[in-house]
Design a protein around this nucleic acid. Structure first.
Lengths: 135, 135, 135, 135
DNA sequence: GTGGTCTAGACCACG
DNA sequence: GTGGTCTAGACCACC
């Protein structure tokens, strides 16, 4: 797996895990229907607690990014990924609001912020490990 | 004060407080040098504990948004607000990354996200209570 | 632990704690990566409140002397300790200034003062409990 | 007066006052027997509370740096200034200890610290406003 | 009156 | 069991 955890970070491990799995889906590294390691396997690989992996998987299942089957194991949502509906856009705005407010208070221009967004879109959609590997 | 807390939210109260105070500064509702309520007063107004208000004030002091004085109480940083330096932009990017990743995974276009940013900039910089109120 | 508090002193308890922990790090008694007692354990050991210990730990974390983890607890900064940069030397000078001024006013010679410094360096770097204990 | 207060500082005003008066004595700017402004005058000059000046004067009187007379007002100790006795050297060491410990922990060399001391001795004993005014 | 410090005891998130 | 958060109530330093 491409997962890299920082156990010293202030960000909870399960959050790092969900974030990177979602980014894997966003980038196409994880494709629809693709199986993911079992809870035990991934926990062992990453050297973390089994419950932590399970929590991450359950959260992603709730959000519709994964399907969890007793026998088949865990697979990336093969049907429709959760949509960009109004509820999501509202949540996005709530999350962005304090970031935008601090940016404004510090004098960061709207352009600077949008440039960061653009840079992230570019890099997430074209991850380094796939560059020129498409042929 | 214009602060509105949701005591049931899973966002810590002190975080809601700091966020809204920063937004107040960003919007110009809180002006440089302006005094803020004492920890006790604000705590009483908001129906929360004085230590929670104090924690929020201390964090904003650390970040350079407030000055705290023995007698004078708390005032909005009258000198230079913290700048939009590279360290801040880096932190901004780290915070934005998982949001952008989920947006991409859900099919939110870069334009939609930038529109939310634009909307936030507009609304934070021109808060309702100040919009053209002079006419 | 080697911590000794004077609860009657006018020096805040959390300050006594941070001072002694920093001295422990300076002396090598506390080694990089070494775990420290949990806030509850240390508070109980020292007969003080857990919040007081927590405050000391948080301050040392801010300064880069400690890392605080959810499960693992608190450990001495295993990476780079905070450096002796210009900002620190400036702060040191600001703190030393009133001490030097009073020393001069009382007729303490520069040599006497430097001798105290030398003595402190010697004793902190070679604490009693480690002095040649290998023979 | 040469006193400069920073009302925004974390250092209590009375402490800034005593520090600067002691430094004035150390530097020779304030000479033995020299009268100091009355509590009211100095408070008015500095724009601070009368009680704050009074507290500073009382502390310096306790330490033997000033004499306070009902009619004559306040004068710099005309007799013997407080000596550099063992009690003072002990206090100096107690105050220096946490500074030295942090310096060691950060890798500041003993030479660097002594250089700061030397620089302070030099500058306090030869204040800018007296440079070349001795002839 | 202000903030600074300390205590006591509670509940929750994390792993 | 760990730290994180919140509450409640107290005393002190500063001005």
């Amino acid at each position: 797996m491409f997962i890299e955890l920082n156990l010293q970070s202030d960000i909870p491990i399960y959050k790092q895990l969900t974030d990177q799995l979602v980014e894997g889906i966003a980038s196409g590294i994880l494709k629809a229907g693709q199986p993911l390691p079992s809870v035990r396997t991934l926990a062992a690989d990453l050297g973390i607690n089994l419950h932590t992996v399970n929590k991450a998987y359950q959260l992603l299942k709730q959000d519709g990014f994964l399907e969890i089957h007793r026998k088949q194991g865990v697979i990336v949502q093969p049907g429709n990924l959760p949509p960009s509906d109004q509820a999501f856009l509202d949540k996005l705005e709530r999350d962005l609001r304090p970031l935008a407010a601090e940016a404004i208070a510090r004098g960061t221009s709207q352009q600077e912020l949008e440039q960061i967004i653009a840079s992230l879109y570019e890099r997430i959609q074209n991850p380094p490990s796939q560059g020129g590997a498409s042929s």
